[in-house]
Structure formats: C-alpha cells, structure tokens
Amino acid sequence: MKKLALAAALAAAATTATAGNLSEPVMEAPVIVEDTAASSSAAGTWVPLLILAVVAGVVIAD
C-alpha cells in the first residue's frame, strides 16, 4: 500500500512539474508609426519674402 501511495504522489508531482505546452511563444510585431506629413521649411521662407516684396513694392510705388 505504501508503494502505491508513493507512486501516486510521484505521478502527481511529475504531472504538475511538466505542465504547460511545448509550442513556441508567439511574439507580436512592434507597431511603428511613421509621420507621413512632410513639413517643408520652404513654406517658412516664402511668407516673409512675399511680405518683404509687397512692402518693397509699396515703398517703390510712393
């Protein structure tokens, strides 16, 4: 009877020790967000040049 109880205890311990699956873990790909709005530095240059041209035109016209 002792051997049966010992075998049952060892079998129960062995099943809990090897619990789990053998499949590879699934890794999700990282999400990369790319800003697609192209900011142009030329827009910041054209506005002051346009204002300067208008002011110069007004000064020359007077």
Rank of each mutant, 00 (worst) to 15 (best):
M1V: 13
M1F: 11
K2S: 13
K3M: 10
K3Y: 09
K3T: 14
K3V: 14
A5N: 12
A5E: 14
A5G: 08
L6E: 14
L6C: 07
A7S: 11
A7K: 11
A7G: 08
A7M: 09
A8N: 02
A8G: 09
A8P: 00
A9K: 07
A9G: 08
L10E: 02
L10W: 02
A11L: 11
A11S: 05
A11D: 02
A11C: 02
A12Q: 00
A12P: 00
A13G: 07
A14M: 11
A14W: 08
A14Q: 05
A14R: 07
T15G: 04
T15C: 02
T15K: 04
T16S: 11
A17H: 03
A17Y: 05
A17R: 03
A17S: 05
T18H: 04
T18E: 05
T18G: 02
A19M: 03
A19P: 04
G20L: 01
N21Q: 07
N21F: 04
N21D: 08
N21L: 05
N21I: 02
L22Q: 10
L22R: 08
S23K: 06
S23A: 08
E24C: 02
E24Y: 07
P25S: 04
P25K: 04
P25V: 02
V26Y: 07
V26I: 14
M27R: 13
E28M: 03
E28T: 02
A29V: 06
A29W: 01
A29L: 09
P30C: 01
P30G: 02
V31G: 03
V31M: 00
V31T: 03
V31R: 04
V31N: 00
I32N: 13
I32L: 12
I32M: 12
I32A: 08
I32R: 09
V33Q: 10
E34W: 00
E34K: 08
E34A: 07
D35P: 02
T36K: 15
T36P: 00
T36D: 12
A37F: 07
A38D: 05
S39N: 15
S39M: 11
S39L: 13
S40Y: 08
S40A: 11
S40H: 11
S40W: 06
S41V: 09
S41R: 07
S41E: 10
S41N: 12
A42R: 10
A42F: 06
A43M: 08
G44F: 09
G44L: 07
G44Q: 07
T45V: 15
T45G: 01
T45N: 11
T45C: 03
T45K: 12
T45L: 14
W46K: 12
V47I: 15
P48C: 03
P48L: 06
P48G: 04
L49H: 09
L49T: 06
L50W: 05
L50V: 10
L50M: 12
L50F: 13
I51Y: 10
I51A: 15
I51S: 10
L52C: 08
A53H: 02
A53N: 07
V54S: 09
V54A: 15
V55H: 04
A56N: 03
A56K: 03
A56I: 06
A56H: 01
A56S: 11
V58H: 03
V58Q: 03
V59R: 10
V59F: 09
V59A: 13
I60V: 15
A61K: 12
D62H: 05
D62M: 11
D62L: 14
D62R: 15
D62E: 10
